[in-house]
């Protein structure tokens, strides 16, 4: 289980090899990569700058990973999140969930992303082609997705 926050890009294959290693109990690996879209609300995007809360970010990501471990049969997991200024097409976030079986891998990757979206202290600021700069507003649909996991807690 590990988390990493920084400006550097990531190599999905290298990260997958590192996190899964030689663990032959792993039967499934789910990988999610979040990327910068070139358009936002119909407008061309020049760049996206990610701010975060150093210290709390790492703590919160570790809490989310721990919660995933309690909920799913996970062999290993990884969260890498980039900060700083990114361009359309750039990678933002990588989530890898390794499990003996696919259902746990898929579900854990989805859970990690849904919780990260609503709990990890990152904020996006978009710079548009027209020169305008604006902070991205939180989406209600992200809160709904995270809340759905909370109601599943008793399953």
């Amino acid at each position: 289980m590990s988390v990493r926050v920084g400006t550097a890009d990531f190599d999905v294959s290298a990260e997958m090899a590192r996190i899964a290693g030689n663990d032959t109990d792993i039967g499934g690996v789910a990988v999610f990569v979040g990327k910068v879209r070139g358009r936002a609300d119909g407008q061309d995007l020049v760049s996206m700058t990610l701010e975060h809360y150093p210290g709390m970010t790492e703590t919160e990501l570790e809490r989310i990973e721990t919660e995933a471990q309690h909920r799913f049969n996970l062999s290993a997991s990884l969260i890498v999140h980039r900060i700083g200024t990114l361009k359309p097409g750039d990678n933002i976030v990588l989530v890898i969930a390794c499990a003996p079986h696919r259902h746990d891998a898929f579900a854990a990757a989805g859970f990690l992303m849904d919780y990260l979206k609503t709990r990890a202290p990152f904020w996006k600021q978009e710079t548009l082609a027209n020169g305008e700069s604006r902070w991205v507003a939180a989406k209600e649909s992200d809160d709904t997705a995270a809340a759905a996991w909370r109601s599943k807690a008793a399953d």
Binding site: G34, L50, H52, Y53, M56, H81, I92, V93, M113, L116, K117, T118, R119, A120, P121, F122, W123, K124, W135, V136, A137, A138
Partner: peptide, 10 residues
């Protein structure tokens, strides 16, 4: 004590 808008990472 930190104050911030709802988070928008990921």
């Amino acid at each position: 004590i930190a104050f911030f808008p709802p988070v928008t990472g990921g």
